[in-house]
Design a protein around this nucleic acid. Structure first.
Lengths: 257, 257
DNA sequence: TCTTGACTCTTACCTTAGGTCATAGCCTAC
DNA sequence: GTAGGCTATGACCTAAGGTAAGAGTCAAGA
C-alpha cells in the first residue's frame, strides 16, 4: 500500500488550504484517491503529483477551469493556450508599467503641490498686479524675453520654481549689495538659461486631448496621464504668469533702482 | 438649471455601464443629483466630474471603497495610499515578469519536445546498448573525452541535438566516402566544439532545489522555473547518455572500420 | 386617447477562488 | 467515557459588476 495523506497533511505538505482541497474536489480538479466510510478524504502519491501540476499552472495565473482542461484533455493545445496566456501577461505588464508611471507622477505632483502652495508662490501678488508687472517687464526687456522666460518656467516643476524664487531673492539681495559697490548685476536670462539646461522637467504642457481631460478642465484639479504630466488647472497659467512677472518685476526693481 | 443626464446618457458619455452607475449609487460612491418621482436617476455636472475622478482612481486599480475614502475624507492621506499602491504595483510587475519568463521557457521546451520525440532521438537504441557503446567509446577516446562531450550535450537544446545528430549522420556518410578515398575523417570533438561555441543553450542543468521540483522528480515531466530551464526528467540523462554513446559509437564504427 | 417601443426601476442570481463560521460527526489518548 | 483535535458539510461573504426577469415609465405616432 502506498502512503496516504489526509487533507491536513496534504495541505501542510503543499501549502494550500484545506478549503482549497475541498473546492478542488468539488470542481473535479483533484479528487481524493479514497473516501473513508466517514467520508474523510485520503490522497496518495498520484494526487500529490497532480496537485503539484495544478499549482504549477496556477502559478502561471491559469484559471482553474483551464487547468482541468490541460490536465484531463489530451487533445488540449497547451502551446496555444500558453501563447494566448503570454499575450495576456504582456498586456498586463504594459498596463502595470503605465500605472506605475502614473502613480509616480501623481505622487510627485502632490508632493510638489504640498511643498509649494499658491500663497507661497503668489506671495500676496494678485493676477491683476502681475499683469501690470508683466507689461512693465515687456517694456523693459521686450516681449520675446518675457515670453521665453514664461515658456521656460512652464517646463519646470514647482519645487524647481521655488528654488528659482529663492535664487531670485538671493540674487536680488546680492544685487542690492553689488549696487552699493557699483557692480553690474548678472543677467536673469543667463540664470534661467543655466537652469533650463540643468533641470528640464515635464511640467506644464497643457494637452486636453480626450473627453476626460475636457471634463476636468473646469475643475481646477490635476489630471495626470501616464505619458506626460498634464496640469489641467486654469489657475496654473495665471500663477506662472504672475510668478514670472513678479520675478521680472523684482529684478527690474533692483536693476533699475 | 444646469443640464441633467439620465443613466443612459451618463453611461454612454463616460463609457461605464448602467449597472455600474446603479452599483456606485448603492455604494454611496456616486449618488444622482435628483431622483424623479418615478425614481429615475438624474445626474448633473457635479456628478459627471465626480465620476471622472472615480474613473481616474479606478484606472489606478484602487478598490472602490478606497476611492470613496479618497473623495469623501479630506483627512485621507492620499500620498501614503499612493505609495502603498506603488509597492503593490511593483510587486505585481516583478511577478508578471517572472511569469512571462516561465511561460516563455515552457513554450520553448514544449516546442522542442514536440520537434524531437524520444524515438527520434533513440532511433531504436536502448539504454543498455548505449551503455555498452559508452564503454567502447571510453575505451577508444578516454573517459575525459566522453564525459566532456556528454557535459556539452547537456548544454544544448533538443533541436540543436537533432541538428547535431543529422550532422553526425552526414559526417558518417562523408566518412564512409572518405574512407574509400583513404582520407582522414574530421574530428568529432572539433565538430562538437564548434557547435559549443556557436549555440550554447540553457538546457539540462538539473537543480531540484525546492519541494515542488522534488515532487516532480519521479513524474518524468518538465518543471520549468523562471530563472532557468530545469529538466526534471529521469529519462533525460539516459537519453543524453544514449545519444552521446550512439554518436561516439557511430563515429567509432566508421573510424575503426 | 391608446398603443408601441424604448427606457428605467428593483430584485435576484451568477461569476473567481476561495475565507469564515456554525454545526455536527469522527478519532484517539487518557 | 470523555476531552480535545480533526474532519465534513452547508451557508454566507468577498469585488465589481453581468445577466435576466418582471414591472413601471416616458414620448411619439395613429
Amino acid at each position: 500500500m502506498s502512503t496516504t495523506y489526509t487533507v491536513n497533511q496534504l495541505a501542510s505538505l503543499t501549502g494550500v488550504s484545506i478549503k482549497t482541497l475541498h473546492l478542488y474536489d468539488k470542481l473535479g480538479l483533484l479528487k481524493p484517491a479514497i473516501r473513508t466510510d466517514s467520508r474523510y478524504r485520503l490522497y496518495q502519491e498520484k494526487e500529490l503529483l497532480r496537485l503539484q501540476q495544478i499549482l504549477f499552472y496556477k502559478e502561471l495565473d491559469f484559471p482553474l477551469k483551464e487547468i482541468i482542461q490541460i490536465l484531463d484533455d489530451p487533445e488540449f493545445n497547451l502551446i496555444r493556450a500558453l501563447e494566448g496566456h503570454k499575450k495576456l501577461l504582456q498586456f498586463k505588464k504594459t498596463r502595470i508599467h503605465k500605472l506605475l508611471k502614473t502613480v509616480d507622477n501623481t505622487i510627485y505632483s502632490l508632493k510638489n503641490n504640498i511643498m509649494l502652495n499658491t500663497d507661497e508662490l503668489y506671495d500676496g501678488l494678485s493676477a491683476e498686479q502681475a499683469m501690470e508687472y508683466r507689461a512693465e517687464a515687456i517694456k523693459a526687456y521686450g516681449n520675446d524675453a518675457v515670453t521665453k522666460a514664461e515658456d521656460h518656467l512652464k517646463t519646470l516643476s514647482r519645487d524647481e520654481i521655488k528654488q528659482l524664487v529663492n535664487r531670485q531673492k538671493e540674487l536680488a539681495k546680492e544685487l542690492s549689495l553689488l549696487k552699493d559697490q557699483n557692480h553690474t548685476a548678472p543677467n536673469v536670462q543667463q540664470l534661467i538659461h543655466e537652469h533650463y539646461l540643468n533641470t528640464r522637467k515635464l511640467w506644464g504642457t497643457y494637452n486636453a486631448t480626450d473627453k476626460q481631460a475636457e471634463a476636468y478642465k473646469g475643475l481646477g484639479k490635476l489630471y495626470l496621464t501616464d505619458e506626460r504630466f498634464t496640469a489641467v488647472n486654469e489657475k496654473t497659467d495665471a500663477e506662472f504668469t504672475a510668478f514670472i512677472c513678479k520675478a521680472m518685476a523684482y529684478y527690474a526693481d533692483h536693476e533699475l533702482s
